[in-house]
């Protein structure tokens, strides 16, 4: 690596080397497939970058299932540990993000029951923005509606919930969702339809 010959101070060489891939590029400049190859060869630095790049999306998927920060971060952590374990089996037939979603959704589906107790965040930045923009009363109504929708989503059957989450909040195509859930596009569309129909029914029956 060019850096190493230019820098003779041992501690600096060590620092630069730890951030460089076999290609001589910084880890953060590698694309997902190169990172996967490096990580599968046992380079933890490459996997660190994968985590850094995808942690928010994985966390958000998990949060949508459990609606609380503690459980979501535990589930997301579990998903990445499983990803590390299964990295050598990743053939690159789908995008890394799709594969990570699949792991996260499976972790959530295995861990979460259909009647997960719903704990609401005490406060969020969104709430304060609403207060400024729309006024306290409108923000309160909107927040109540959001709580009702979250509760309704939490009562959906698992596959419907997963489909709704991936389609609505992660803009995944029906085909990608089918890949994640191991089902067909037709089944995904049917699940999406029934998820929305059930949401409507649950929300409509609330006082």
């Amino acid at each position: 690596m060019a850096h190493e010959s230019a820098l003779n101070l041992p501690w600096m060489v060590a620092t630069v080397t730890s951030f460089d891939s076999a290609e001589g590029k910084p880890w953060s400049e590698l694309d997902d497939s190169a990172l996967v190859a490096e990580a599968a060869a046992g380079r933890r630095e490459a996997f660190d970058v994968i985590v850094e790049r995808h942690r928010r999306a994985v966390y958000q998927v998990c949060y949508r299932f459990v609606h609380n920060h503690e459980d979501a971060s535990d589930l997301a952590q579990d998903a990445f540990v499983r990803a590390w374990r299964g990295l050598r089996n990743f053939r690159g037939q789908s995008a890394l993000s799709t594969w990570l979603y699949r792991i996260a959704v499976n972790v959530c589906l295995n861990r979460v029951t259909a009647k997960t107790p719903l704990t609401e965040p005490i406060e969020s930045t969104e709430h304060f923005e609403d207060v400024r923009i729309e006024g306290a009363q409108r923000a309160m109504i909107r927040e109540e509606r959001a709580v009702a929708v979250r509760k309704a989503i939490a009562h959906l059957p698992k596959k419907q919930r997963a489909t709704l989450i991936l389609r609505t909040y992660h803009d995944m195509s029906h085909q990608q969702i089918a890949d994640v859930l191991g089902s067909s596009v037709g089944a995904v569309k049917a699940n999406f339809f029934h998820a929305l129909a059930n949401l409507k029914k649950i929300l409509g029956s609330e006082p």
């Binding site: 969020s124 969104e126 959001a146 929708v149 709704l164 609505t168 949401l199 409507k200 929300l203």
Partner: peptide, 13 residues
């Protein structure tokens, strides 16, 4: 219904 669902956001940690 989809519109309602889309308005539910994840609080940023």
């Amino acid at each position: 219904v989809l519109h309602d669902a889309k308005r539910v956001s994840v609080p940023e940690p």
